[in-house]
């Protein structure tokens, strides 16, 4: 038995190799670059932690970080409840399901299938005050709107674009969680006279928990790494008002070929995402593990 289990680990080997080549080795290279001043491919000087010091004192970067956190917090605060609300509104009883639910699922999946640069382009045109339906429409109502000139308008457009693109993911995940709830649970709740909120809180939420953890983690990481859509929509402007972290990083690494600082920045960026995901994982998943741990303890005490 033991020997079989050990051999089974060999099955994981291809994944380990692929992750090593696509993730670990590039990350190690980035760390190597982050402590050197790279003049060209063959000329490099070791500079220790200098780039880190410089990056951590770079006001433009700290501003970009602030904007990034604000953006991620805002889109998550809107998309998660919205996705759950959409999923709850969809027909899911076997009788009512029919083609309606199937059509809704396809419609919901559509924004997810659109390539990210196309999403940016769609919204870039849609929100233009001269030819775009949204921009022209808002201006026709007498409200001045120009996302390429006014920072707040750029932000609203950026948030709207992300909220157009991503709640479907949460809705689809939540819907799959909701369909796994047996009808008897609802009937029992109805017999007990549970309110709609109580049904949501005590019948649906426990079943949604695991899919929502995945959903929130995916959205959190994605929103922290967002690049293409804001780049196409606003190009980080007006000024730098919508320049998020990854765009600032790309400007530094590709635009200015400051490989050293860009690598130091990447390492810090990686640490930030790792920290946020770990905090989230610990707060949500660990609590479950801990309950199992407590239950095991109780069982052991009984025995």
């Amino acid at each position: 038995m033991q020997a079989n289990q050990n051999r089974a680990w060999l099955g994981v080997l291809p994944v380990v190799l692929i992750v090593a080549f696509s993730g670990v080795i590039p990350l190690m290279t980035v760390v190597n670059f982050s402590v050197q001043d790279v003049l060209d491919v063959n000329t490099r000087f070791f500079v220790g932690f200098d780039w880190y010091r410089e990056i951590l004192r770079d006001q433009r970067l700290l501003d970009a970080l602030g904007r990034q956190l604000l953006f991620s917090a805002t889109v998550l605060a809107i998309e998660i409840p919205l996705g759950i609300a959409v999923a709850r509104a969809m027909p899911r009883e076997p009788k009512g399901r029919g083609w309606g639910a199937a059509a809704l699922l396809v419609l919901l999946a559509l924004p997810l299938l659109v390539p990210w640069n196309v999403v940016g382009t769609i919204w870039q045109v849609y929100a233009r005050p001269d030819i775009g339906l949204l921009g022209h429409g808002i201006n026709a109502l007498g409200i001045h709107y120009n996302f390429s000139q006014v920072s707040s308008h750029a932000w609203i457009t950026l948030i709207l674009m992300d909220v157009w693109h991503w709640p479907s993911l949460i809705a689809l995940l939540a819907f799959s969680g909701l369909t796994s709830i047996p009808n008897q649970h609802y009937q029992a709740a109805e017999l007990d006279g549970a309110s709609r909120w109580q049904v949501f809180r005590f019948v649906e939420m426990p079943r949604l928990r695991s899919v929502l953890i995945i959903g929130v983690l995916l959205r959190l990481m994605d929103s922290l790494m967002i690049y293409t859509e804001p780049f196409v929509l606003t190009g980080g402007g007006p000024g730098t008002s919508t320049t998020l972290l990854s765009q600032y990083l790309a400007t530094m690494a590709v635009g200015q070929f400051d490989v050293g600082p860009a690598a130091a920045f990447s390492v810090l960026y990686f640490l930030l995402i790792l920290l946020l995901c770990w905090l989230f994982y610990t707060a949500v998943v660990k609590r479950d593990l801990e309950q199992d741990f407590a239950r095991q303890g109780e069982r052991a005490a009984h025995e």
């Binding site: 220790g48 880190y52 010091r53 951590l56 640490l271 920290l275 609590r287």
Partner: peptide, 30 residues
């Protein structure tokens, strides 16, 4: 929270990274 040995190593490494970043952000000495 309850942790395994691996969790504690991970937390230690993350804390080490955090401490170094904080030092580099606040002071100029090594």
């Amino acid at each position: 929270m309850a942790t395994t040995r691996g969790d504690r190593i991970f937390i230690s490494l993350l804390a080490a990274a955090g401490l170094h970043v904080a030092w580099l952000a606040l002071f100029t000495s090594p």
